[in-house]
Design a protein around this nucleic acid. Sequence first.
DNA 1: ATAAGTACTGACCGTAAGGTTAGCGAATCA
DNA 2: TGATTCGCTAACCTTACGGTCAGTACTTAT
Lengths: 217, 217
Amino acid sequence: MSAAPLRQESQESRDEILRAASRLFASLGFHEASMSEVARQARVSKALIFWHFKSKEELFVAVIKRLLEPFSIDFASEAQELDEREQLKRLIELYVQFVRHYTGSVRFFLTRLLRDDREQEGPASLSSQIRGLYESYRNLLVDLIRRGQEKGVCSRRLDAESAATFLLSTLNGLLVDVLFLRTPQPGFDSILSTLDSVLFAQAPAANVGSGARCGRA
Amino acid sequence: MSAAPLRQESQESRDEILRAASRLFASLGFHEASMSEVARQARVSKALIFWHFKSKEELFVAVIKRLLEPFSIDFASEAQELDEREQLKRLIELYVQFVRHYTGSVRFFLTRLLRDDREQEGPASLSSQIRGLYESYRNLLVDLIRRGQEKGVCSRRLDAESAATFLLSTLNGLLVDVLFLRTPQPGFDSILSTLDSVLFAQAPAANVGSGARCGRA
DNA sequence: ATAAGTACTGACCGTAAGGTTAGCGAATCA
DNA sequence: TGATTCGCTAACCTTACGGTCAGTACTTAT
């Protein structure tokens, strides 16, 4: 917000605050994380937090903004020359990697999505942003599957929309396992290879046999 | 807890409190729901709550206990004479119905699961109870699939464990859709029928059955 | 009748929360 | 060299929380 140039100390303390706040909001949620604790962990006075951010809400928004950054990778631009099947696999891999890498943030976002009822949820709200991100990932999948189907790479048993929904559903189920049940990724590989065979099986599933394994690393 | 017989008034106010508390805990979570608000909504004095339950924590536990009750249906006892395929479909249907019917409670439980870190999580903790419930549902699935495979009703492409994991993963994904993204279950039916064909894979696209339709109004 | 216990309330308490204010030392600008 | 702005803090304010307590009407048991 500040258009004026900041001295370096200011930036440093601001960062320290944001880092502490991220940690606390992520592990405790908005309401249970107190400003005093943020101040303690950032080793600054509580008043300084209110000098940088005019309210707890504003600090929260700043934290969110920071956490959302790594999500904005431009999927589309990467892996342009791969065929549809490989691109699809890459997308799935990205999803899995993302969840594994940013588990804390993802948990945080999910907590927000769970809490935010249909309440006044401005288009700039966190929930909306996350839903938007999710939608664009989904659209990428649909496009890719559709193109794959046109070229005969993907199974045509389902229309592209349904296939994407199914794929996402399974991926989200994986996410639930990791985040909620904390199972040490149990059927990860087998699930992914099953997905693979559902998506790419030309012939009806019965005779896919061994060729469907198409293993991940 | 009170072994002594209660007069009726006592039971009524106790129920009223539990009902208000359920509502508030479910929509706001433990920390944001205040005892004063519970008292207000239950139309009793705050002190009465502390007469019935000796702390907020204890009230919370009582609420949980009550919310968990409907989950303890004995799946195994019902639909005994159906064949494996039908039983499996029934189980899936139960899951879907359950999520739709107890959406509030499920959201509440998920919130808890998200929050409870590896912290002191006694075996009697809510998280453990939920995980236990989930495990028994899963075991039911594995058994059923295994029996189905022995009788040649279920596809043998995956071992029973993997198939159950896959099935659950997809179901949980559905749950994510309903709870987090609040999509008006778009691919519900198509997902279920895809699942069906993966599990039973003899003939593609045998519909998962009228019971699973779960039509929205 | 009376003593004991049940079901309940209004007023109160200590604590911790989010947030404010007055002011201090150091850098910046005139 | 002042005056001003920046980066920061200790102390404080208000509010709302979980929880307590003294007391009161009503029921039951003796």
